[in-house]
Design a binder for these strands. Sequence first.
DNA 1: CGTCTGGTTGATACGACTCAAATTTGGTGG
DNA 2: CCACCAAATTTGAGTCGTATCAACCAGACG
Lengths: 259, 259
Amino acid sequence: MPLTSVVPSAIKSHSGSTVAIKLERFCRLSSDDRSAIDHVCRNVRVVDARRDLISEGSRPQFVHLLLDGWATRYKVLPDGKRQIVSIFLPGDFCDVNVFILKHMDHSIGALTRLKVAVITPEEMRELTANRPRITQALWWHELVTMAIQREWTLNVGQRTAYERIAHLLIELYLRLEAVGRASDGTCDFPLTQTDLGDATGLTPVHVNRTLQELRRDKLIALERKRLRILDLPRLKDLAMFNPNYLHLDGEGSHLDANG
Amino acid sequence: MPLTSVVPSAIKSHSGSTVAIKLERFCRLSSDDRSAIDHVCRNVRVVDARRDLISEGSRPQFVHLLLDGWATRYKVLPDGKRQIVSIFLPGDFCDVNVFILKHMDHSIGALTRLKVAVITPEEMRELTANRPRITQALWWHELVTMAIQREWTLNVGQRTAYERIAHLLIELYLRLEAVGRASDGTCDFPLTQTDLGDATGLTPVHVNRTLQELRRDKLIALERKRLRILDLPRLKDLAMFNPNYLHLDGEGSHLDANG
DNA sequence: CGTCTGGTTGATACGACTCAAATTTGGTGG
DNA sequence: CCACCAAATTTGAGTCGTATCAACCAGACG
C-alpha cells in the first residue's frame, strides 16, 4: 500500500503535517487532535546546519519536534571518538519526557538547516491531557525510538561494514517514506561519509570503499546528497533487514479517531 | 553516600523491595506508593536459567518486573549472529508500555533462574492512576533505559575490546550497587564469556584474552560467577566511563512523597 | 566415571584502521 | 563568471585488532 493513500491532502497544509502523518501511522487522529498538534508547533526555532541544538550536560527545558531537516543525537568520548547514536528525521520528537532528567547525557546536532518546534512541559501536558490517542501515539513513538536504538546496537555489534551501511540506508529510506519524504527508492541524504562512519562505527575511508562496493554491485546510487536504492529486495536481503522493529504495520488502528 | 543509608530496612521485607529501592533513586515514595508496588508484584512467575521469558514475534501481553535474577534482551540475525542488546537486573521493568506494540522485535532470555512479577495492562493502569510519583518514576526508568541503550551503541561502536568490556563491567556493578546488590567492589556475575561476547560484539576467544589482560593489569578479579573490581578509578578512566547516563543523582528528589 | 559446558591456548587469516596524498566538489567573494 | 578555498571524496600502501579454526583442559553433574 503506497503511503500517499493514507495521507489526506488536507493535512499537508498544516505546520505539523509531518508529525501528524507519522502519528497516524499508529492510529487515526481526530481533527481536534490534529489542530492540537498544530497548536503546539507554533513556536518554531530555526537552527543552522552543523550547529548544536542541545549540548551534553545542559538542562533539558523543552521538548523539540523536528518539522524539517535532519539531526543527529551523538556522544563524544574523551579521546575524541564520536558516535552518532541516532538520527532524527522530520516528524520525530526529541525525547517526549526529557525534562524529567537533570542533565542531557548526549548532544543533538543539526545535519542540515532545521525547523524545530519548541514545546514547553506545560504545552506538552495540555497536548496529552484528555487526548488518549495522542498520548498513546506518543508512547508508540517512544517505543519505536527505543526499538531503533536496539537495532543500532545490533547493527554496530554484529554486522559487517557492508551489511551495516546497507542496513542504515534502508532504515533511513523507509522512515522517510513513512512520512511522505521518499518514494521510488529515492530520497534526500545529507550525511557525509564521515557522518556515516560516526553512525556505523567505521572510519570515513572504509565507508568510502564500502559505498563504492555497494555502487559497483548496482545496489545503490548516492551522489550530491541524494540516495537512490536500486534494488531494495536484494539490499534488504544482504543487510538482513527485518522491518519489524520499525513497527509501521498500523499497530493501533483499532483506536477510533472520534471516540 | 553509601546506598544502604537510603534503604529503610522496613522495605526490604516486601516482595517488591528491589523495585522500590530502584524507584526511590528517583523520588521518595509514600507508603501507599510502596504497597501499590507490592500489590502489583503478587503474581510471580519463575523461569529457569537459560530459558526464554519472551520470544521475538510474540504478542506482548504483560509487563514484566524482574524481582530476582539476571535476564537479557537479545536479537538474532538470520546468519546466526546474536547480540545481547541489554541486560535486566533485579528491579528492572521490561518495557512499561509494551502492549502498545503488536509484536516483540526481540527476545528476553533468563541468564539465571528468575523471579518475575507478571503485570497486566489493567494493573499497570491502576498502579499509575492517581500516583504521579510512580508515574514519573516509571518515566524516569524508561528514560534511563534508553540512555543505557545509547551508551551501549557508543560502546560497541567506538571503544576497543579492552575498554568495551571494562565499561560493561563497571555499568553492571554500579547498577547493582544502586539496588543494594553490590558493595565493596564485589557482585554476582552470572554471564559466561560467550554472553559477554554477545553483549560487546566480540568473539568468546577474544573476550577470554581481554579478561586475562584486565586481570593481569590488576583491575578486576572474575571467577566462579563473582566479579570483584580491584581498582574502580583506574578502570573508569581507561573505559572512559562517564556515569552521567545512569542518571543516579537523585533527579526527582524535589517531588515530595506525601504531597 | 564419562559427558558436557565453559574456559584457555596457539597458529593463522582477514576486515577494518592508519597515514598520507591526490582529486573533486561546493561555496564564496572578487 | 572565474579564482580561490575549505570540505568532502577518493586512492594507495602498510599495519593491527579481532576473528577463525582447532585443540586442549577444568570443573560440574548425572
